[in-house]
Design a protein around this nucleic acid. Structure first.
Length: 481
RNA sequence: GGCGAGUUGGCGGAGUGGUUACGCAGCGGAUUGCAAAUCCGUGUACAGGAGUUCGAUUCUCCUACUCGCCUCCA
């Protein structure tokens, strides 16, 4: 069996992944707060952990992996959005949740086995909070319930901070009811305009971190294998999750492996609303960047390195994917290549995996030249180790494992339906005349106009081929008529 | 201020204690009326300094620089 190696943030080392129960490998990834379209940065953890999910399923079997990714549908950002738009909270979260699912499906992400919504787990959160109070890890004050960070001596271990360090440069909300400035909210009171639930501390709503602790416990238990998310969540979110979960279920262990993806940048700069280089996955899709291209670009950088989104990368990815898809049209997938699995098992080395795929593609092209010739008795033909069709099936399965293709080649990669045949005929006619007269000026004129319209013109001894290129513009051809 | 990641050829981006992935671009060639496409060939790069070592781009330390998180945001 393949040994997967993962970089564990908890130990800051690359470790062999050993599941608690190989019949049920359990992974929790922090999902979105549903108040708006997912931006490109949101897609990175989704794609990264989707690759891990696919790899785990491949290694342990599809029925032996449980992947949970939540929707946080109670949050002050949502409340603010509702207030400013006049729409109901339920309407906003339902719409945004569906957007997220649609957009993530477009970038090839499988749906997790469970996608719990925070509002469906309020009783479990209240129960957990009550338990924390009972054990002396939390206290109620002025309608709030706060987690007492000093009650948990491991607090800060994941992100490598001490409570004292953090207080020094603290940007924490100072509140008179906090025993320690780092104490964070488990429950807070709601007024008449904010959503709230009845609780032992009055009508209120949960703080940001408790939902993940409650839902992971409910769906995966007190001890599970992998917990993932963006590295911006490391502190405070994951730190607080650990504090809550480990104090609520002492000795259980919570998550064994913590994985964090690095942040995304755009053209070398941080993507942020204030810098104006902020865009959503939907923006890209609507501007003709296919989901597979987004995915390819994401996978071309290792997940623990900052990834720079550039248009150039997207263009290159598109070209590369097109050439790959050409090789697997109508091909039935077999088993993914060993070398692809092995590279993914090395802490998800997707960048190297893409290079290996390209190698496979090259092998297929090379193989095609001699395929079957030896068997057919062609003189001097080399015997190929494997047939081209075998290689293609393996290649397709490898692409599928990475989520870069489904059953069919994506339609965007097919050529334009625009009929170019009459241009081809006139070019052919002009060329055959020119071959006699040796005056190619007329041929070149037609050719250049076609090229100007984004058409790829290929002339050889066998004939003339015209193919719509990536920047094909039919309107420019009309001037030719 | 605290925490963390990184610095590899024109660009992107792997990897390794000793034999210089790979992609794109470029260059040379084959091919072509010319091109395109394709194919063949071609690149001695690892921030700076010190140390460990027979030998370091790869390990250790220091310096410089870049980036991110601790705020909206993953």
């Amino acid at each position: 069996m393949t040994t997967i190696k993962l970089h564990n943030t908890k130990t800051r080392k690359r470790e062999d992944f050993v599941p608690i129960d190989s019949d049920n490998v359990r992974m929790y990834v922090c999902g979105p707060t549903v108040y708006d379209r997912a931006h490109l940065g949101n897609a990175r953890p989704v794609i990264v952990f989707d690759v891990l999910y696919r790899l785990l399923r491949h290694v342990y079997g599809p029925d032996h992996v449980t992947y949970v990714r939540n929707f946080t549908d109670v949050d002050d950002k949502i409340n603010a959005r509702a207030a400013e738009s006049g729409r109901s909270i339920g309407e906003i979260t339902a719409e945004t949740t569906q957007w997220f699912l649609d957009d993530m499906a477009a970038v090839g992400a499988l749906e997790p086995d469970h996608m719990p919504r925070a509002t469906a787990y309020i009783p479990q959160m209240i129960e957990m909070i009550e338990g924390l109070i009972a054990k002396g890890h939390a206290y109620a004050a002025e309608g709030h319930v706060l987690f007492a960070v000093e009650s948990y001596k491991e607090y800060g271990a994941l992100s490598g901070r001490s409570i004292d360090d953090m207080i020094a440069g603290a940007r924490v909300e100072v509140a008179p009811y906090k025993r320690n400035p780092m104490d964070f909210v488990l429950w807070k009171p709601s007024d008449g305009d904010t959503p709230g639930w009845d609780s032992p501390w009055g009508r209120g709503r949960p703080g940001w971190h408790i939902e993940c602790s409650a839902m992971s416990y409910e769906l995966l238990g007190a001890h599970f294998d992998i917990h993932g998310g963006g590295n911006d969540l490391m502190f405070p979110h994951h730190e607080n999750e650990i504090a809550q979960s480990c104090c609520a279920h002492p000795g259980a262990g919570f998550a064994n492996y913590w994985l964090h993806n690095e942040m995304l940048q755009v053209e070398g700069k941080k993507m942020s609303k204030s810098l104006g280089n902020f865009f959503t996955v939907r923006d890209l899709l609507d501007h003709g960047v296919p989901g597979e291209v987004i995915r390819y670009v994401m996978l071309s950088t290792h997940y623990r390195k900052p990834m720079d989104w550039t248009e150039k990368k997207a263009d290159e990815a598109k070209r590369k994917l097109k050439s790959w898809y050409d090789l697997v049209k109508g091909v039935e997938a077999s088993k993914a290549s060993r070398i692809i699995i092995d590279n993914l098992a090395e802490d998800l080395n997707t960048a190297f995996t893409l290079r290996q795929l390209d190698q496979l593609a090259g092998d297929i092209v090379h193989n095609d030249k001699f395929d079957g010739q030896f068997e057919a008795g062609v003189p001097n033909a080399p015997q190929m180790a494997r047939s081209s069709s075998e290689l293609r099936s393996e290649f397709k399965a490898s692409l599928q494992l990475l989520g870069l293709i489904g059953d069919e080649v994506p339609s965007w990669s097919e050529e334009t339906a625009f009929d170019l045949s009459r241009f081809q005929r006139s070019l052919e006619a002009a060329r055959s005349v020119a071959m006699q007269t040796k005056d190619f000026s007329g041929v070149d004129q037609i050719k250049n106009m076609l090229i100007g319209a984004g058409v790829q013109v290929q002339m050889s001894k066998e004939g003339v081929e015209v193919i719509a290129g990536p920047n094909f513009d039919p309107t420019k051809l009309e001037a030719l008529e």
